[in-house]
Write a protein that binds this DNA or RNA. Structure first.
Length: 201
DNA sequence: CTTGCGATTCTA
DNA sequence: AGAATCGCAAGG
């Protein structure tokens, strides 16, 4: 297990988005480390990107976190009820980030299930297990991430990402980003990355 | 101050 | 396919 360092985050956003697939996110809540494996991400590449909150250098109270140095969290509220978690990338004053769109629960399963559904993991239906955190709002709910975590460093002991040396490299698919109808020519850019289902051989 | 809408989710 | 639901940012 190797914690991702500042150098990992302070690189090209598309590279970071792709490499975050198969990494793990940890959030320490009430003394317990909640862990999930990242399965889907989207890159938001800054002031040129019409889908990015910092498009045209839009620097507001909300987007302030995007301007921080790579390795911080940008958490915002969407549709009045769901939190979205982003990993800020690149240098300070380069407002880019990677949206964490989906993950698989790792441990402790019962605590994650409690956060998400107020049930033990065993009580979940197969449908709930399969769709446990396959969306940005679901991911933050399972990991208890809220705007409270906005602007927090991802290099701390309570909130960080890591990679597992023993994992085999994930098979990565790409495609256009979701729900950004307004982004015109940027809406078709293949800046979404996801782990492909393991095919049975 | 007002207003229009969004990097979504759940249910049917 | 539609509703829920409210903060945010733009405009007057």
């Amino acid at each position: 297990m190797k914690k991702l360092t500042k150098d990992f985050y302070k690189r090209d956003t598309l590279t970071v988005a792709k490499e975050l697939i198969g990494k793990y996110i940890v959030h320490r809540v009430k003394g317990e480390n909640l862990v999930c494996r990242i399965t889907e991400t989207e890159a938001y590449t800054g002031i040129e990107d019409k889908a990015c909150h910092a498009y045209q250098d839009r620097r507001t109270k909300r987007t302030e976190a995007l301007y921080m140095e790579g390795g911080h969290a940008y958490v915002f509220l969407i549709y009045g009820m769901y939190e979205c978690m982003n990993v800020v990338t690149e240098e300070e004053n380069t407002p880019c980030a990677v949206l964490l769109r989906g993950c698989r629960p790792i441990s402790p399963l019962d605590v994650l299930a409690q956060q998400r559904y107020q049930k033990t993991y065993q009580q979940l239906t197969n449908y709930q297990k399969k769709n446990f955190a396959n969306g940005p709002g679901k991911l933050t709910k399972a990991l208890a991430i809220t705007r409270e975590q906005n602007k927090k460093s991802l290099l701390s002991e309570e909130f960080f990402l890591f990679e597992n040396d023993n994992d085999s490299p994930p098979v990565i698919g790409t495609g256009p980003r979701i729900n950004i109808e307004y982004a015109q020519e940027y809406k078709q850019k293949p800046w979404r990355f996801f782990e492909m289902e393991k095919t049975k051989s």
